[in-house]
Write a protein that binds this DNA or RNA. Structure first.
Ligand SMILES: NC(=O)c1ccc[n+]([C@@H]2O[C@H](COP(=O)([O-])OP(=O)(O)OC[C@H]3O[C@@H](n4cnc5c(N)ncnc54)[C@H](O)[C@@H]3O)[C@@H](O)[C@H]2O)c1
Ligand SMILES: NC(=O)c1ccc[n+]([C@@H]2O[C@H](COP(=O)([O-])OP(=O)(O)OC[C@H]3O[C@@H](n4cnc5c(N)ncnc54)[C@H](O)[C@@H]3O)[C@@H](O)[C@H]2O)c1
Lengths: 234, 234
DNA sequence: GGACGCATGTGCACGATTTCACAAAGCAGG
DNA sequence: CCTGCTTTGTGAAATCGTGCACATGCGTCC
């Protein structure tokens, strides 16, 4: 058998938490902290310490028993595992309110996801400059993706155009999509899609508020339902 | 014992999917479809049909065996369960790029979450009108929350100010928070927080891209890793 | 009025994730 | 070097979520 398998497969739930740990660790590092225990990190992340240890164990054994983890080394390892040791240029489809806000947002560049292109279907938007990037016609999408070696696309079109945008992105060679339009996209297997949907988030909050009021009416004063509290002072 | 308990507790995973079903069902209803099977809905939502049935069964038995579900009735029931039978006014803290974009976004109002107020700490922003709402001083937050009966707050401040914003929201009486700042908030138990973090989403995509390239190098051409495909043509 | 076909609702097995609990391991102090 | 204290790394148990499989109930057609 081969020396060591491709690499451990990391559970989805863990992958979703690694960026949180990374953000906290980077802050700690900037603040001069050079060592942290699983419990310390857990408090700052608002999770259980055992979970932190198990999550980190998927990266390898980088802690020191009786001491904790070296913050900088952990930052390095998490970044490596997440593929953040180099930039991932992204292309934005749709240069409306949201598309422009995203393009102008420093958080993209700062975190290693430079906006390498932004396209729109409206000729009225062409060549307007949004935060350093010129808006290009939708037709140039494939060319931009190929020229810049882009594998991540962001959809910021109206819902009705989002499936078309996804199809074009996939055809152009993009393999990961971040979708801001409130519709379910259909894509070939192998393409990873993540959705950010404001309405969904608000409706989930609404559900909890609604439950709260129902519970109050029934005199269940502090029945401690399934709410989640966060620990630690960030 | 009482006639029937408060109401079934719905699993988090299900609550997170109900808004998706709702959106699809509303579309179908608008399109003249008046009946749908669990399989039809499952295809449109990109999930398993059994999951749809189990999810819907938490609302009660509203399907007809051999036939399917009445679309409008399902819309009604889901809306009721999510607490969408009345508006939930929200207050936005931070009137910067994001705060203004959100306030101006029709999606809030349309979906039953009217922006009842927006506050900022910067006097330069006071009284500027953002989509019908006047930006008010941060100090008026408590008053606005009380006057409008607000229970949901949105944080759109820089990360450094987000914890302070959360503290003020909680003190003002808000019990649900949607946080756009990339930090983990610390709040009392009972307060529900949801976070929307662009960097986290992109880093998760980055992880999958990174794995993809590692797999390619090892000649694992189509080893079908843990990717998720979506079904149906939306 | 009865037989047939279809789609729901759900028991059950399975898989994933979380949490517990503790042995193993590093460090400090004597 | 040995003892004691601390914190990791990880089996194993508990919990949660998913999907299969099928009995049940409803509508339709003869
Ligand atoms: N604005 C917000 O704060 C906000 C918040 C959450 C979600 N969203 C969602 O984000 C999406 C965009 O919102 P917005 O406010 O920017 O809308 P918008 O109308 O301002 O912008 C949409 C842009 O997409 C372009 N477009 C239309 N069809 C296209 C196509 N086929 N290919 C490429 N470009 C196309 C339009 O020309 C326009 O420039 C919507 O789906 C909306 O629901 C917006
Ligand atoms: N702009 C985007 O596209 C985008 C995308 C994702 C996430 N975010 C996040 O959203 C947040 C806001 O981003 P932005 O681009 O709007 O920033 P911004 O600087 O444009 O706006 C921040 C606003 O908050 C106000 N503010 C500062 N301290 C405050 C306080 N204590 N109380 C109330 N208001 C206060 C400021 O006066 C300013 O108006 C940031 O945390 C950012 O990381 C932004």
């Amino acid at each position: 058998m081969p020396p060591h398998r491709t690499r451990r497969r990391i559970p989805d739930a863990t992958v979703a938490r690694l960026p949180i740990y990374l953000q906290i660790l980077a802050e700690q590092s900037a603040g001069g902290v050079d060592n942290i225990s699983s419990e310390g990190l857990a408090d700052l992340a608002g999770v259980n310490a055992a979970k932190v240890r198990k999550d980190l164990s998927y990266l390898g054994s980088y802690g020191t028993r009786g001491v904790g983890y070296d913050v900088d080394h952990l930052v390095y390892q998490i970044r490596r595992e997440l593929g953040l040791d180099h930039d991932w240029p992204v292309v934005i489809v749709g240069a409306g309110n949201l598309g422009q806000a995203l393009a102008g947002y420093g958080g993209f560049n700062d975190r290693g996801f430079p906006v390498a292109g932004i396209v729109d279907i409206d000729p009225g938007k062409f060549d307007s400059v949004v935060a350093g990037a010129r808006v290009r016609p939708l037709e140039e999408l494939a060319q931009i993706v190929a020229a810049k070696g882009i594998s991540i696309g962001v959809i910021a079109t109206p819902p009705t155009a989002a499936q078309d945008a996804a199809d074009r992105l996939v055809k152009a060679g993009v393999t990961s999509i971040l979708n801001f339009a409130p519709i379910v996209l259909s894509v070939p297997v192998g393409i990873v899609v993540r959705k950010v949907d404001l309405a969904v988030e608000l409706q989930i909050l609404s559900y909890h508020e609604q439950r709260r009021s129902v519970a109050d009416q029934n005199g269940q004063l502090h029945a401690v339902p399934a709410e989640r509290g966060r620990g630690a002072t960030a």
